[in-house]
Amino acid sequence: MKILVCIKQVPDMESKFKVNADGRWYDAADLAWRMNEYDEYAVEQAVQLKEQVGADSDLTVLCIGPERVKETMKKALAMGADRGVNVADDNSHQKDPFEIASIIAEFAKEQGFDLIFTGMQSQDRGSAQVGVLVAELLGLPSISTIVDFSYADGRISAKRELEGGVKARVSCATPALVTCQLGLNTPRYPTLPNIMKAKKKELLSVELAELLKVEGKQETSKIYFPEKKGGGLVLEGDASDLADQLIQILKEKTAVLA
């Protein structure tokens, strides 16, 4: 069984963000980078499937982006992927979901993957489009937003997460693509031996020009910090003083201490 998992490197969301020089994206300097959280679940599920299928399985991890994304790819390799493919692109942050999906589909189209895993969205852009677009471009069925996954005899069964805690049970034949929601599984921490092993795994680079054959349909014209609304009170200081101030406020503004 051939399996592909697509991952993205994103900044730690706790970072202090700044707008970049052209005002159209966040500044990449001084950020801590990590694997998109949704993709950690995708990698884990792909590795679990590989373990289930056994010797006759092969797992590739694909990531588009500049040199630094290789650090994130190494984590996926240490979690259990067999090889990495980096589509080298210093301007991946300017690509729209259609361009990103087209690059992935172009890479995947001749390879005969039985299953493709992606995160359901990225933490930075959050469009939630790429996975479904890849499947559509490849003519595959796709199931988005899964929180449960199993595979047997050429069919996948999954649960989609809907609003309000409701889930939908669905199934389809492979080849297929699934997009992974948070909570799908418990992503493993790479062990030291596996981190060492990962250093010897194949990490290929592919030129963007070989795979990018389309033009984007949208662009970010401006990025900015939202205005602070409502004029909420911001209090800083020592814990004991803050507690006293808050109790006073709750007495004045709410009825909960009455």
């Binding site: 966040y26 959050g126 349909k217 662009e219 014209s221 910090f225």
Partner: peptide, 20 residues
């Protein structure tokens, strides 16, 4: 007339221009 969408957990916002 320009759509606005959140970025990075709503820490930032972006204006998006469609080319279609």
């Amino acid at each position: 007339g320009v759509p606005v969408a959140p970025v990075c957990n709503a820490k930032l916002r972006r204006e998006v221009k469609a080319n279609t």
